[in-house]
Design a protein around this nucleic acid. Sequence first.
RNA 1: GCCGAAUUAGUAUAAUGGCAGAACGAAUCCAUGGUAAGGAUUAAAUGCAAGUUCGAUUCUUGCAUUCGGCACCA
Length: 583
Amino acid sequence: MINIKEDEKLSVLNHSCAHLLAQAVKHLYPDAKFWVGPVIEDGFYYDMDLGDKKITEEDITAIEKEMKKIAKDGKKIVRHEISKKEALDMFKDDPYKIDLINDMPDNEVISCYTQGDFTDLCRGPHVESVKLLKYFKLTKFSGAYYKGDSNNKMLQRIYGICFPTREELDEHLEELESAKERDHRKLGKDLEIFMSDDLVGRGLPMFLPNGYIIWQELENYIKNKEKKLGYQHVMTPCVGNVDLYKTSGHWDHYKENMFPKMEVDGEEFVLRPMNCPHHMMIFKNKLHSYKDLPVRIAEIAHDFRYEASGALKGIERARHFCQNDAHIFVTPEQIKDEFKSVVDLIFDVYKDFNITNYHCVLSLRDPADKTKYYQDDEMWNKAEDNLRQVLNDIGISYTEEIGEAAFYGPKLDVNVKPAVGNEYTLSTCQLDFCLPAKFDLKYIDKDGVAKTPVVLHRAILGSIDRFMAYLLEETKGVLPLWLSPVQVNIIPVNNEYHLDYAKKVNNLLLDNNIRTNFDDRDEKVGYKLREGVMKKIPYTLVLGDNEISNNTITYRKYGTENKITISLDEFIKLVNTEIRSKK
RNA sequence: GCCGAAUUAGUAUAAUGGCAGAACGAAUCCAUGGUAAGGAUUAAAUGCAAGUUCGAUUCUUGCAUUCGGCACCA
């Protein structure tokens, strides 16, 4: 999918189209007040205040029509520069623009762009004339908080996209349409991977047999990787005493986002939203020598968060999920090596899953925010400098983002842009000087003095659930063989004559830990074949006289139409090799 | 949570202020030997609650859920 923002020409075109949108809205709703209209990856939007007027589908059609009319009129888009004082006067009836202007330095030269009867404050650049804005579409509309702050008033936002030619516009709109086909929620339903039901509860998806096979494969895969790296897996309860979270500080920071507390026998509990406190207590269970460190406590852990209803999205964001979590307890000297080892693991895993489209973010605190972060400037400065140093030493490229840290420490986030929807974090590694102190964790150092360890919080697959959503969307549901719920579909040509041989083949495959579907229904070969293809089963075997007489199988691979006949042994070898390759 | 839209068999859908209709799937029966749908029959649906109305799946309101955004994401 094309990124409008990164293409200079398209960027200018789309930004100009945002002005055209504003002009059309102004014509139709003269009282409209405008905030900003930037270019984004998939086009542009404009935020506006239309008073009590709520935009409807019909309004969008009318606005589009007005935009076409203005464009046809073909007015030039003219730039002129004014002083801040002039700008304040010019936009005196437009409180949002005044807000923008007030934020600019006093000596700033402010540029405006005029097209016919409409002038907008803007840095530019723009196309020469509105007549170049021919092939656009208003794609969606919604509310959006003024300045992105939910305490502020909600403005109305209209999204659109513009291209130089009709072909490009049509192609883009088609791509958007076909992207819906790979939405993990649709694939999850079609391929019977997960379900949800109102009676079970909102945001609580359930994995079906197919989904649980994928889930288990992922679990085994990452656990094996971790075991080789010295991680020790544990199992801890999904419910915890409220005091546990008061000790960690999560209670103060996140209690609104937890399921509400419940009281039993005078004790207060919550469903756990994360696993750090449990793992802290496991570390504390015995006295550690510096020789024990790093101690790596890992868990495929069930967590529950009371996510805002509007945030829920299939298994990508749910109220119950499973983290691929671990907490690594290190000495200060070990931070760098251990951090590098985590980063190496992340990229090793990404290689196995062919994940190449990611970017790394060093997430820092916002020093001005006195409520979101644990207040200890010395600790933060140390942690942030430390982490930046480690990242530079390891030599990965990253961008820094202020205000994205966890409340207890800075982190490296690895974000991916899925085929559908917004970017999100897949993997994370966080540096924490805070929680170990709160839990009064100690290890005995070389000099016999008890010292507080540093903790790395890390998740590689993030949550298994979200990782599955990502995989489904990336692969369009055509999973690699090792993850496919059914790997081989077995179809006897005729149930009367070929069933025994087909059964023999099926049993041999099962003996080799290959997942099969044995299709002995009374249906025609073509019918069964089609169904297997619809379910995206990687291999289909059709077995009849030819195969029986030569002790062979004939297979067809998903996505191809070739029929290939080989011996059963060769086939098992082929399948096993492909499973091992993870491709 | 906020703004907006939507909700019809298991699934994806059509239509309607007066008996809700095809398709795929399911069940039963018949047929069935080679690479993308064999045939017949049957069962199966208007999210929940209220209001308007002689009559509501259709109109109105509330609730629930889903979807598109916004905000949030330890």
